[in-house]
Every structure is written in C-alpha cells, then in structure tokens.
Simulated assay, not measured.
Amino acid sequence: MSRARRRAAAPPPGRSVLAGFLSLLGELLITVGLVLGLFVVYSLWWTNVLADRQASARGDQIRQQWEQPPAPTPSAATEPGALDTQGGVGFLHVPSMKNGEVLVKRGTDSEVLNDGVAGYYTDPVKSALPWDPTGNFTLAAHRDGHGAKFHNIDKVKTGDAVVFETRDTWYVYKVFAELRQTSKYNVDVINPVPKESGRTTPGRYITLTTCTPVYTSKYRYVVWGELVRTEKVDDKRTPPAELR
C-alpha cells in the first residue's frame, strides 16, 4: 500500500480521541451502575439477612431466659425499661403482616432497630408498657432493610389482632384506626391518649409506626389498637386464638 493510501485510511485524530473518551465514559457508567446495584442488594436484602439472623439468636436467648425462674423486678410495673437492658421485653405478633414474631426492645434509634427488632419509644414521648394500668405502648420498626419488620403495615386493617407476648402473659389488642400518612414530626400520634386515632380518654393502647412511602422515610404510617383482653401463659405456651 502506498504512503498516500495509508494516510487516507488512518482515522482523523479528533475522532480517535472522541471514541476513546466515549468508551471510557461507557465503562465508568457500567461500573457505577454495578456499584449502585450492589448497594441496593446490600440495603434491601443482605441487611435483612443479617438482622433476621441476629434477632432470631437474641429471641432464642430471651426464651431460654424465660424458662428459668424470673429475677426480682420490683419496679417493672411502673418503669418502662426496667425489665430491659440489651435484651427484650417480649414478642410482637401481627398475623396480618405475616412477618412472624418480632422481638421488642427499648429505644427507637437506628442502633436498636437495625438489629431487626421493634423498639418502644423513650423519647420524645415516653411509652407505657402493656402491663401498665393505662397508657400507650408505642412501637417503631423499619419498613425496608434491616429486617423490615413493619414492611407490610399497610396490610393491617381495622379489626385485626395485634398480640404482645411476655414471659407470663398474652396481651391481645384489636386495631381500631389507621393513619396512612402523617409528618415524621407529628409526635401526637404516640401520646398516651392518641386523639388523632379518635380516642379521647385514657385506655390501654398500642401504636405501630414506620416510614412511608415504601423505600423512603419522608412520612410516617401509623396503626392504633386497644387492649381487649389478657391471657395467662400456660405451661405449653399455647397462643391465644388470634394466633391459631
């Protein structure tokens, strides 16, 4: 081939630089896409696996402790958290969520909820506990990632059962109101008498809260229930009818 033909066949220098840039850009975009994809898998799947594993192990420890003679807890009836250090006060059962039993611990910050549990509020409004004569047992849990224990909160409807299990008692609640969206700064929903639920007098309430819409934390989703009865735990820990 003559020198003139080789010169004619060579690509223009500008086009070669542009092609190289576009190729590099494409590779970078693919890499970024893969990293983002892996992050989503980690956030929405792997954190669930880790949290469920940890919560299950801790739940087993709690049940083993329950098989031993109870330690004296003279202030347990009046002080939320008196039964609870790093363990848990009991297990929440919400059949309509189809999420099995949920260990309940003290506190609602990320360090607690990321362990795949539900936590009861100590701030900004102090939660009552189920055995208190009146008050609002107020709980929070993640809706996505880290166990996502309240992912199906939108499946809970008025009339559904919510059961809380302790060492010696089943507390059976009945859902009476739902608030599908409210500001995350609306602390009135966890007041001892949650008036937005329609109740105006003291009672024995339970409140479930989590983020909404799904995969965001912009608003809060709230479900309220009221205690309808208690049952003593028998030797076989036979669950109440609502869980059978």
Rank of each mutant, 00 (worst) to 15 (best):
R5G: 15
A8R: 10
A9S: 01
P11W: 02
S16R: 11
V17G: 06
A19V: 07
G26V: 08
G26S: 11
I30K: 07
V32T: 11
G33T: 10
L34P: 00
L34F: 03
L38G: 04
L44H: 12
W45V: 14
T47A: 03
N48H: 11
L50G: 03
L50I: 12
R53G: 07
Q54F: 02
A57G: 03
R58T: 07
W66C: 00
W66R: 00
P69K: 11
P69Q: 05
A71R: 12
P74E: 04
T78I: 00
T78W: 02
E79K: 05
T85L: 13
Q86W: 01
G88I: 09
F91C: 05
H93T: 03
H93Q: 03
P95E: 04
N99T: 03
G100F: 04
G100V: 08
E101T: 00
T108F: 01
T108G: 00
D109K: 10
S110T: 11
E111D: 04
V112F: 11
G116Y: 04
G116E: 06
A118V: 05
T122Q: 15
T122I: 15
D123K: 08
L129N: 09
W131N: 03
G135L: 11
N136H: 15
A141Q: 14
R143T: 03
R143K: 10
A148Y: 09
A148L: 08
N152A: 08
N152E: 09
I153Y: 03
D154V: 07
D154E: 13
V156M: 14
G159E: 13
V163S: 07
T166R: 15
R167K: 12
Y171K: 12
V172M: 05
K174V: 14
V175T: 04
F176K: 01
Q181N: 09
S183Q: 12
N186D: 04
N186F: 02
V187F: 10
V189M: 12
N191E: 15
V193T: 09
S197T: 08
T200S: 00
T200H: 01
T201V: 09
P202R: 15
I206S: 12
T212R: 07
T212N: 06
V214G: 06
V214E: 10
Y215D: 10
R220F: 05
Y221H: 05
V222M: 15
W224G: 12
G225L: 12
R229M: 06
E231M: 01
K232E: 00
V233C: 04
D235N: 11
K236L: 15
